[in-house]
Amino acid sequence: MANPKNNPKLPTSTGDKAGATVIQRWSATGKREVVLRLLRGELLDVVSREIGVEVYRLERSRDNALAAMDAGLKERSDDDPLQAGLDAAHKRVGELSMENDLLRARIGRLETSTPFPRARSRR
């Protein structure tokens, strides 16, 4: 982590002019290593000084990683029996809702005395 790829506005070297800056990008691996260091308990200020990244950027990366971890832990696998039961229940509720709508339409026609269309004779 001595030369990170996402250090915006860091001088290119000590001998450059005061205004010269280089904007670099971090790799996902580099971000993961830094976030893991923070999660293991290293002090935010120490890591910030060591790698030359502002504290707020490190906090944002840590918070994003924790949010992604929470989302990953909440996901259910495809072979989860509970999820299969929920999917079957949702399907059945949908079928019953459609059936209720059709029955309400029939009741509405009967109440307005609109005759149903007659089927053709098969003879």
Rank of each mutant, 00 (worst) to 15 (best):
M1W: 06
A2P: 04
A2C: 05
N6Q: 13
N6E: 13
N7S: 12
P8F: 01
P8L: 00
L10Y: 06
T12Y: 04
S13H: 07
T14A: 13
G15A: 08
D16S: 08
A18I: 08
A18C: 03
G19C: 05
G19V: 06
G19H: 09
A20K: 09
A20G: 00
T21Y: 10
T21G: 04
I23D: 14
I23G: 08
Q24F: 08
A28H: 05
A28D: 11
T29S: 07
K31F: 01
V34I: 12
V34E: 01
V35D: 01
L36W: 05
R37T: 01
L38K: 05
L39D: 02
G41C: 01
E42H: 02
L43H: 13
L44R: 05
L44A: 04
D45C: 08
V46G: 08
V46D: 15
V47A: 05
S48Q: 01
S48G: 02
R49K: 14
R49F: 08
E50I: 03
E50G: 02
I51C: 02
V53N: 03
E54D: 11
E54N: 09
V55S: 02
Y56N: 09
Y56F: 10
L58V: 01
E59H: 06
R60C: 02
R60Q: 10
R62M: 03
D63T: 06
D63L: 05
N64G: 00
A67N: 01
A68E: 00
M69P: 00
A71W: 02
G72S: 03
G72D: 04
L73H: 04
K74G: 04
E75T: 07
E75I: 04
E75P: 00
R76E: 06
R76F: 06
R76I: 04
R76G: 02
R76S: 04
S77G: 08
D78T: 10
D78K: 12
D80F: 00
P81H: 05
L82V: 09
Q83D: 09
G85T: 06
G85H: 08
L86D: 07
L86E: 10
L86P: 00
D87Q: 14
D87G: 08
A88R: 15
A88H: 11
A89S: 07
H90M: 06
K91P: 04
R92V: 02
L96M: 10
S97N: 11
S97E: 11
S97M: 04
S97V: 02
M98T: 15
D101A: 15
D101Y: 13
L102H: 15
L103G: 04
R104P: 03
R106Q: 15
R106F: 13
R106P: 02
G108V: 06
R109D: 13
E111F: 06
S113V: 09
S113H: 11
S113L: 11
S113P: 00
P115W: 03
P115M: 01
F116K: 14
F116S: 14
P117F: 07
P117E: 11
R118W: 09
A119I: 14
S121E: 12
S121M: 10
R123T: 12
R123K: 15
